[in-house]
Amino acid sequence: MIISTLLHDIVAAGFLTNPAVRTAIVVGALSATVSSVVGLFTVVRGQSFAGHALSDIGAAGGSGAALANISPLLGFVAMNLIGALTLEAFQPKRVRGRDLVTGVVLGAILGIAALLLYLDTTLTTSTGTTVSVLFGSLFTLPSNSLPLAIGIGSVSIFTIAWIYRPLLLSSVSPELAQVQGVRVRWISLVFLLALAAAVSLSALLTGAILSTALLIGPPTIATRRTHSIRSALVLSIAIGIGVTLAGILLSYDSVAWTSQGVGWPVSFCIVALLTLVFFLVPRRTHTVGEHLTKDEPRSAPTPPSSSALVSK
């Protein structure tokens, strides 16, 4: 009884029957999953800035799409693929200076985004384009965008699964990967394209400039708690979906709480929850016998006090 009353209090009336909410939940869970998977490699490869840059670059595509009257998702994807290719083409070999090149490319494309958005507002009568492209909301999503979203999400996930081993190896050490015959440059490009697809999808969810939250947040928390890539993946997806669904619920509920009935935007709710989780989850410094999957060989128990953890 108490539980059902409580549930009733938390889940406001009409939450699950509202079609806008249903679309939001499906697309939200989907893009949270894709972002968490792709984001894990983004964090491990130290490409957070490139990940964020792609979301901003996508904004140029989103605003271009409004001008050309095509689906914003298509605009995002097209622009992001161009952005990914440009970033990779200008990428210097050494890690130093990589961010600088990303920044210059981003600056140029943001300039174009400024122009396109300006044309959007002057040529068309839609004044809200800037806000909807940059801060897009789940609740305003048309339900017919679902098949396209699922398609783009699957392409991104399958690409990562396809290049999983060489990607992981070249993320740990490009040199070791080269020795095994991995074409590091090629893997890096394919990864950037998968990243571009993932970012486009989450840009729909939280808007272009907030999609970084879902890309970086859950994987960062996950890598602090886990010691193997697989458990990090699982935890990252769990956090991503959990935070997104909780955010959607919070946003829906907040309409009733706030005085004017305006409610809090979904993107704010998701990001706020993510930041909260980040501060609540402490870093795990070392493991004492991480659980292995059953067919992996079990090794001797770890000696409790070992000098092994003294970092160099």
């Binding site: 964090v43 130290g46 957070s48 800035f49 990940g51 964020h52 806000v131 801060f135 808007g207 400039i209 907030l210 970084t212 939250a213 970086i216 947040g217 960062t220 602090r224 305006v262 409610g263 809090w264 935007p265 993107s267 704010f268 998701i270 990001v271 706020a272 993510l274 930041t275 980040f278 501060f279 870093r283």
Partner: peptide, 26 residues
């Protein structure tokens, strides 16, 4: 203090942007 430079930068930015979205809606 709790993360790498890159991810800390990204998280700080998105949190404040989230606030921006909130103010925007209000």
């Amino acid at each position: 203090r709790r993360s790498t430079k890159d991810t800390a930068t990204a998280l700080a930015m998105v949190f404040l942007l989230g606030l921006g979205a909130l103010f925007l809606s209000q």
